[in-house]
């Protein structure tokens, strides 16, 4: 199987869906309200091929020593490297009881991948500030399910770390989008997905951010990372 070139994926693994969200119980209702900070939908096949960004332009936004982006890219495979520019939707208001703690709100990330091989999928996420790692999280996807001719891997409702929750909250206190974007210029996340048994690198996704104009909701562009 070969994937069309309009989304994050290789012949071994494809990102189908990615959401970072906050969820809370409504006072009036029994159902939960979910607000998505960022979201990648399953991509329609009619999308044009991805533009390329030279990976050297963003080396310094991620750790540079001991398994940083440069080392990872040198090891390859190059077709497994992608960049996502998110315009995050921060247009939700914190409730009074949530100002001191999470107040019962749940901050999480859910993602879904698919591919032709049944493997144990591990995901390392590095949160970086000024290119330096501040938090690292290692997760293993649920065992894959065979669905419609391919294996589907899920990491559902993975809790956001305290650093990220506090970061989002502090960002929201800034009065202007320009100020938020200025802070976000030095905030990045690097995700590396591997076959846990062989340690083969399957996908490496670099995330960079701005804040969405509030009426638009979360948006994104996806790029291939390359090097001439």
């Amino acid at each position: 199987t070969s994937w069309p070139g309009s989304h994050i994926g290789t012949e071994t693994l494809r990102l189908v869906e990615f959401t970072a969200f906050v969820e809370r119980q409504s006072e009036r209702d029994t159902c939960k309200q979910q607000h998505r900070f960022v979201h990648i939908d399953p991509t329609p096949t009619s999308e044009p091929p991805l533009e390329m960004v030279d990976v050297r332009q963003i080396y310094d936004k991620f750790p540079e020593k001991g398994g940083g982006l440069r080392d990872l890219y040198d090891q390859g495979p190059p077709q497994a490297f992608f960049l996502v520019k998110f315009w995050a939707d921060l247009s939700f208001s914190l409730l009074e009881e949530e100002l001191g703690g999470t107040g019962g709100a749940f901050y999480g990330v859910s993602s879904r991948y698919e591919g032709p091989r049944a493997l144990t999928l591990s995901c390392t996420s590095k949160v970086c500030s000024f290119g330096k790692q501040v938090v690292e999280k290692l997760e293993t996807a649920e065992p894959p399910h065979w669905e419609d001719g391919r294996f589907v891997f899920r990491m559902q409702r993975s809790p956001l770390c305290e650093y990220l929750i506090n970061f989002i909250r502090k960002l929201q206190t800034l009065p202007e989008k320009l100020m938020m974007d200025s802070v976000l210029e030095n905030f990045t996340i690097l995700q590396v997905l591997r076959d846990q048994e062989t340690q083969e690198l399957l996908l490496c996704v670099a995330f960079v951010f701005e804040v969405s104009a509030s009426e638009r909701g979360a948006q994104h562009h996806i790029y291939r990372l390359g090097r001439d």
């Binding site: 533009e51 080396y59 520019k85 315009w87 000024f130 562009h221 790029y223």
Partner: peptide
């Protein structure tokens, strides 16, 4: 200048990098 002293706006990035997509 070191790369980390160069603002993102001055780097060689596609024009689309600065254009927030319209909602589908």
């Amino acid at each position: 200048a070191r790369p980390d002293q160069v603002p993102m706006r001055k780097r060689q990035l596609p024009a689309s990098f600065w254009e927030e997509p319209r909602p589908a």
